[in-house]
């Protein structure tokens, strides 16, 4: 029971940090799930995150994997509700307030200020992920190739991600 409460608390808290995208919560996600509670190891967390890039829908649905690894199906359910419900209610409420806020003189300031911080948080998440994932020249080359491919073309991002996995497998078997 204590474990479910901890899962709910951690993921409810993490959901509040996802301004601008799920990646913004990644540094704190790593801190809490790996170092504080030892629910997953850092490589496991990175693997789930990467698999989450392949799954359809919002990419942070990978939090369900952590819940499932800790406490099976009920764990996954608790984590999902904690991660989605509070911010969902907040969005719902603000969405209804939006028209009244439309002429608030501070609104553009708030939007731009939060925008910069959100980009900064995504960058921090990327740095934390890169520290774990880019453990050698081979992985750096893969990341750069995926970056170049995606910034120059409009292909579905899942394709280069699956291709990197295939290249990793190829190197493992034939390299």
């Amino acid at each position: 029971m204590k474990q479910f409460a901890e899962l709910a608390g951690v993921f409810g808290y993490l959901s509040l940090l996802t301004v601008g995208g799920g990646m913004a919560a990644f540094p704190e996600l790593k801190q809490l799930t790996v170092e504080t509670y030892h629910w997953v190891t850092f490589p496991e967390l990175m693997h789930y995150y990467s698999l989450g890039q392949l799954a359809p829908g919002p990419n942070m649905m990978m939090v369900a994997s952590i819940g499932a690894q800790v406490a099976g199906l009920p764990g996954a359910a608790v984590v999902l509700v904690a991660f989605i419900l509070p911010t969902g209610l907040l969005t719902f409420g603000i969405g209804r307030l939006w028209n009244r806020l439309a002429n608030w003189p501070w609104r553009p300031a708030v939007q731009r200020g939060i925008g910069s911080v959100a980009v900064g948080l995504v960058l921090a998440g990327g740095i934390v992920l890169a520290r774990g994932a880019l453990s050698g020249p081979f992985y750096i080359v893969l990341a750069v190739l995926v970056f170049l491919l995606l910034i120059r073309t409009k292909i579905n991002p899942a394709i280069p991600i699956v291709l990197s996995g295939a290249i990793g497998l190829g190197v493992y078997f034939f390299g």
């Binding site: 601008g20 995208g21 990646m23 490589p43 990175m46 693997h47 995150y49 990467s50 698999l51 890039q53 392949l54 731009r112 925008g115 910069s116 959100a118 980009v119 995504v122 960058l123 998440g125 990327g126 992920l129 890169a130 774990g132 994932a133 880019l134 453990s135 081979f138 992985y139 750096i140 893969l142 990341a143 750069v144 190739l145 995926v146 970056f147 491919l149 995606l150 910034i151 991002p157 280069p160 991600i161 699956v162 291709l163 990197s164 996995g165 295939a166 290249i167 990793g168 497998l169 190197v171 493992y172």
Partner: peptide
């Protein structure tokens, strides 16, 4: 081996998201 390679790919993907988000917001 598969998962480590897709984690590297994910770093490439997040960098693209970052550039696009930055171009729009900054």
């Amino acid at each position: 081996a598969f998962l480590r390679a897709i984690a590297a790919g994910a770093v490439g993907l997040i960098s693209v998201v970052l550039v696009q988000l930055g171009a729009k917001m900054l």
